[in-house]
């Protein structure tokens, strides 16, 4: 006892030990800011060296770099062969295809699962289904890539009349879609659970069936949460790397994302192109090396924008119930 009281009298808020603890914990929290700054600095520095106008100013050889406009508006992506061309439109079109394709799988299934879990499932059913759905997000992405390449592609090859190639977008879209279902489901279900029961009771009081209540009351009331879950899930799909790097091939060409036939051919999105560049034979000073950073910056900006939009939607248009 005496040692405890002695401890208490010697230690106040201003004691060195208290200050040390406070500064240690603060430093840990500040690391997250440092990481963000680190990401931005590394990506921007690498991308600046990639573009001709800034690359020359930073002491890079002009032949090794591209202009910003040719990066943004041209559609030839050939980092491995002469002449090296870096047109973002090719990998970007593949990324859009990946986003649309996985959205067709994940958005309806994820929303249906959310409605089922929130409105229809018994407690027992929910306690089984919710963790089971989370498993879908827990399987490593490289395993999903293996599924797409070894099992789904041969299956599609038999089902599709014209056949599909060894590498194709559709199998990648299917596995990425399955992977992001839990994201849609968990956030949408949270939003539906936040809809107060009084609204449902009012619906039943007016003579509505469970179907009417679910589709006409719960879903519209939770629409901001559902929308934000969609955007978050799609930003996850865009950032998805290994499954597409394995299943979608290594070449990027400009394709029309709205053309269903295009999905049967290979097309490598931004993330897979980065892996392609990293595993290729590149030197640390070449244009291909810095192209990784330009692609990374593009990806970072797109996903960050989507995350912020999702955040804004869920906070600004959140219906406040009391």
């Amino acid at each position: 006892m005496s040692s405890i009281t002695a401890d208490l009298t010697t230690q106040t808020t201003k004691s060195p030990r208290e200050r040390l603890a406070r500064w240690f914990f603060f430093a840990c929290a500040a690391i997250s800011i440092v990481v963000t700054i680190g990401i931005v600095v590394v990506l921007v520095l690498g991308a600046l060296k990639f573009f001709r106008s800034t690359g020359v100013a930073l002491g890079m050889a002009p032949g090794d770099t591209v202009t910003l406009s040719s990066y943004l508006f041209e559609g030839q992506w050939t980092p491995g062969s002469e002449p090296q061309q870096f047109g973002l439109l090719a990998p970007l079109s593949a990324t859009v295809m990946l986003m649309l394709g996985s959205a067709i799988i994940a958005l309806p299934l994820g929303l249906a699962a959310a409605i089922y879990l929130s409105e229809y499932a018994s407690d027992r059913m929910r306690s089984v289904l919710k963790p089971a759905l989370e498993i879908l997000a827990g399987v490593p992405t490289v395993v999903y890539g293996f599924f797409a390449l070894v099992y789904i592609t041969p299956l599609l090859d038999q089902l599709v009349p014209l056949g599909v190639g060894t590498f194709n977008m559709v199998s990648a879209c299917i596995v990425v879609g399955i992977m992001i279902i839990p994201m849609v489901t968990s956030i949408s279900e949270d939003a539906m659970n936040a809809v107060p029961d009084s609204l449902r009771q009012a619906g039943y009081g007016l003579g509505a069936t469970k179907f009417d209540v679910s589709t006409s009351i719960v879903v519209p009331s939770a629409i901001s949460g559902i929308a934000s879950s969609y955007i978050l899930a799609l930003s996850r799909a865009i950032g998805e790397t290994m499954a597409v790097a394995i299943a979608a091939g290594s070449q990027s060409t400009v394709m029309n994302p709205l053309n269903p036939v295009a999905y049967f051919s290979p097309n490598s999105p931004i993330t897979a192109q980065m892996i392609q560049l990293a595993t290729g034979d590149i030197s640390a000073q070449g244009a291909a090396y810095h192209a990784m950073f330009a692609l990374g910056l593009t990806l970072f900006v797109i996903t960050l924008a989507m995350n912020i939009v999702s955040e804004l939607i869920s906070s600004r248009y959140r219906e406040v119930y009391r």
Binding site: G38, T271, A284, G296, T303
Partner: peptide, 27 residues
């Protein structure tokens, strides 16, 4: 806010961070 946004950054970007920061020390 920063932490929740970091959770949404694609994993491949963290690879670039490792490459650019730890190995090349930002060039």
């Amino acid at each position: 806010l920063n932490i929740s946004n970091l959770a949404g950054v694609p994993s491949v970007v963290y690879g670039l961070l490792g490459l650019g920061l730890f190995i090349n020390l930002g060039g």
